[in-house]
Amino acid sequence: MTEYNFAYLDEQTKRMIRRAILKGVAVPGYQVPFASREMPMPYGWGTGGVQVSAACLTPEDTLKVIDQGADDTTNAVSIRKFFEKTAQIAVTEKTAEATIIQTRHRIPETLLTEDQILVYQVPMPEPLRFLEPSEVETRKMHALQDYGLMHVKLYEDIARHGEIATAYSYPVMVEDRYVMSPSPIPKFDNPKLESAALQLFGAGREQRIYAVPPHTRVVSLDFEDHPFDPSKAPHPCALCGAEDTYLDEVITDDAGTRMFVCSDTDYCGARCEAAA
């Protein structure tokens, strides 16, 4: 078996992905079809994010990989090792030190900068899919900017529950044109979608790439009388005391005692260290 190319993918595949990324950047929020390759990890486990990262990584990059906000969750560990092996790049767990961050389900708490690229793993890129299963139909809706179905769904939620009953993958409007799925991040993270960093989204199985360039307007869908509310558990972090972070609920004994701790392990760890 010969050695694999830098960052695993062959150059022709990278060029194809790179062209898709550039078109995604040019049309923020629009899902660009791309010829997703079979990767040596299962679909649904980050193949889209991995392909986007592989197409973007340079030898000088420092990579951070998180899953659920944590660097040490098994899938994050596995993807980080994949790139250490195939691209021999530096890796870090510190958000501020990373130049490329691949994530599943979270945006780091630390504000991202101009010098960073955030790559999302996306399971279902189509925000309208659960309202309309046909790709032919949803593509038409995006073409016509016909988002009536989405507004009806959100409105029905309010009529039934008094609020929009979507807690993650909360849809956003990008640059007043495309309704976009921010991937299954909790809606708490939605405000961070307006960022100084470039954000790239890769959906391998569904063969789509999309992008939010820096400083792009990203608005969570809502109604004037029911404004978007990025809610979180009403607790401080039990480890670092932060009151403005997204929290995991951890059950600590058989009696069901719980505690709330930061989901962003790097952020929480740094705060604990600073306090110690």
Binding site: N5, F6, A7, E11, K14, R15, R18, I21, L22, V25, A26, A55, C56, L57, T58, P59, E60, E114, L198, A211, P213, P214
Partner: peptide
Amino acid sequence: DPARDGARAFRAALQAMAR
């Protein structure tokens, strides 16, 4: 070095289009 030089060139192209 097509893989590494290409990666650096793409980063420049990406940053230029994104900004």
